[in-house]
Structure formats: structure tokens, C-alpha cells
Computed example of a mutant assay.
Amino acid sequence: MPENEDSYPAESGRRRFVKGVVGASALGATGITGATGIKYATTSSGTGGGATQYFGIENTGGPAPRGMPQIPIEIDSDGYLKGVWPEVKTKTVNGEEVKVAEMKLGGITYSSEWFQYCGVQTYSGIVPDADQDNFFRVSESASTTYDWMSDLSAGDKLNVSDFENYETWGNGIGKPGLGKPAMARWRSEDLPPQETIPVQVLRSTRIKDLAKKSDHPEWIRASTEKGFIAWLNKCTHFCCVPGFKSSAQSAKFGGSNDVYCPCHQSVYNPFNPVKLQFTSLPRPEDAGSSGSSGSSSGGESSA
């Protein structure tokens, strides 16, 4: 195909990609699943990246190699939703002091490295001590995905009250009553659009009951609250932005009641967070300080 030919014409509804993102994504390794249920990475990385265990919503179909990473949720006293950011610490790595964001949460080390793939590792909001609040805020294009979000303005903080009808909500895609979703952004205020960290938030009765059924109840209790779950909304295949009940064509691929990526038909189950492993990419400044040649354009390095 000629280099300048668009393989995803506008009428297809699929997204176009920056060459650097696609090129880096092509480096992703094929996933292998062992008896432990953890998917292992096959590529290496430098300071600020490397083999990383995390919890993500389960990938159940399509070419995506692994689940999208969860963002633990907390709700403040006014009902506003926030994503937990790991504690910032200073460590000595290769003889140099570097800042890292990590903490023990729900029986696992939760760190900013969970989100270091698909170019996100270059975003300013992922820097451990970035001056950002952690509220989930309405994304610019939210109302084009979900009609109910047209009552909100871009940048508004999401509140529990926005999801009051979550037990019955439906939009004509799949079954109603499975939960109410929202498109949001996180740690992205006053940054250029290309550094927006896309997030999907979902409230569901299934999430409320999940700790009783999950193999990892400690994590579920630590990462969800009042039936809310959230994840970094970057498909682990080629970095598209998927959606729960956001595409009518998802029914053709068995994804009408799940999270569906319209680019290459990957499907994720938000009601089954699983423990996974992948190779996170180093942030550019970390790669430079350690002499690593890790990709700063950031594609899927995993899994």
C-alpha cells in the first residue's frame, strides 16, 4: 500500500493513526498465557519501564494482546470521582536518584508504569510528580459517544449524581441495565489535546457484586467504589479509544454488552478484571538518563 494511502477512510468510522504510534505498536509481541493466568511480555525496556504486573479489564476477543489497565477509584465527600494516583517516591536507579509513583494497593504494587504504553508514557500527566489533580473530567467528545453526556460540559468533574439511573440505563446497544458509562479524561488539564489521557468510567450493579465473585477480592475492594470501575481507555492493540456500548456495529463481533474497539474489533469485559503482566515503556527522560533506547513514540510493547 502506498505510504500516504489512508487504510481507514473517513466513511468507515475507523481512526487514523500517527505513523510513529502505529510503527511502535507493531513492535508488540504475541501474547502467551500460562497456567497462572498471567500474560507475559517478551520485550525489554530501560529505567522507568520493564516487566510490570497490573490489573486490567479482560480482553476476550480480537487482536488486542492484553486487557486495558484499571485506574483505582475514590469518591470525595462531595461525590466527585477521582482516579487514585500512586504515591511519589525517590529511588536510586543505576546510581541516580529518580522519582517514581508507586504504592501497595489491594495486594499488588500499583504504579504509573501501568499506563506506560501506546505513547502515554510521553504524556506530561504521567510524570510521577506532575502538578495535576486526579478528578475524572468530561472529555471533549463525550456527548458524541453518549447522548446523556450532552447535559455536561467538557472539563466538568464527574459526580456520583450523574449516574443515578445506572441500574436501568440503556442506549439501544445490547441489553439495558448493565451499567452506565462515561467518557472522561484524567490528569490532563491545561495540556495540549495530544496529551489527553482518555478514561472510561462505568457504574454497574455487577461491579458492586464483583468482590464476592472475583478471584482477587482484595484488589476489587481497593480499586472500585459504589459500583464504579475505571480504566485507561487505550486499546492495547493499536491505541484506539474503545467504548462500552458505544458502537452499533459491536453486535457483529459479540461485543454489544462489552467494551468494543471499532478499529480492529477487539473486545474487553469490564466485569472481569484480571491480573496481567506486560513490558511498560520508559518515559523519555528516564530512557535518556539511563542510556536506554526505549521508544518515546510508544506503541504496544506487550504482552
Rank of each mutant, 00 (worst) to 15 (best):
D258I: 00
N257Q: 01
I229G: 08
G255N: 01
T144P: 01
S204T: 06
T43N: 15
G172E: 11
Q70E: 15
E300S: 13
G31E: 14
Q132G: 04
K82M: 09
L191T: 12
C240S: 07
I38P: 11
Q200K: 01
K208L: 06
K245E: 09
I207N: 07
Y8K: 11
P193G: 07
S141G: 03
E11R: 04
D209E: 10
G172Y: 06
S292T: 00
P65R: 12
C263A: 07
V138P: 00
K82A: 11
G37T: 06
A41W: 15
F278W: 08
V267N: 08
A29T: 14
Q121P: 03
L202Q: 05
N165P: 02
V88S: 13
S289E: 10
I108T: 11
K91C: 01
M149Q: 13
S256F: 03
R185I: 10
K19P: 15
L202R: 00
E97G: 00
T60C: 10
A26C: 14
T42E: 11
D286R: 04
R203F: 05
V100A: 08
C261Q: 05
K104E: 15
G28A: 03
G243H: 04
T47F: 05
G79N: 15
R187F: 14
S280I: 00
V22F: 15
C263N: 09
G20P: 12
F135C: 06
G294I: 01
T145R: 04
G67C: 11
E87S: 10
D209I: 08
S214C: 06
F115Y: 14
G83K: 07
W231Q: 02
P63C: 13
K82P: 03
C235K: 00
W148G: 15
A10D: 12
T33A: 14
V127T: 15
S139E: 15
G299R: 07
Y146H: 11
G67A: 12
I32W: 10
M149R: 00
C118M: 09
R16N: 11
S214G: 04
A29M: 08
S214V: 02
T30S: 12
A64G: 13
K91G: 01
S25Q: 14
G291C: 11
S296A: 07
C261A: 09
K82L: 13
E58D: 13
F238H: 03
D156C: 14
G125H: 10
R14H: 10
G298M: 03
A10R: 04
P63A: 15
T47H: 06
D286C: 01
A248P: 01
P273A: 01
G20Q: 08
A24Q: 03
Y260Q: 00
G62W: 05
N257Y: 02
G50W: 05
C261Y: 02
E113Q: 11
N272W: 03
S223D: 01
S250V: 04
Y260S: 00
T60R: 14
P2E: 07
S246A: 07
S143T: 11
L158W: 13
S45Y: 13
S161E: 09
N165A: 10
E97H: 04
G255M: 02
Y260L: 03
C235D: 12
Q70H: 11
Q277N: 04
S150L: 07
A230R: 03
S77W: 15
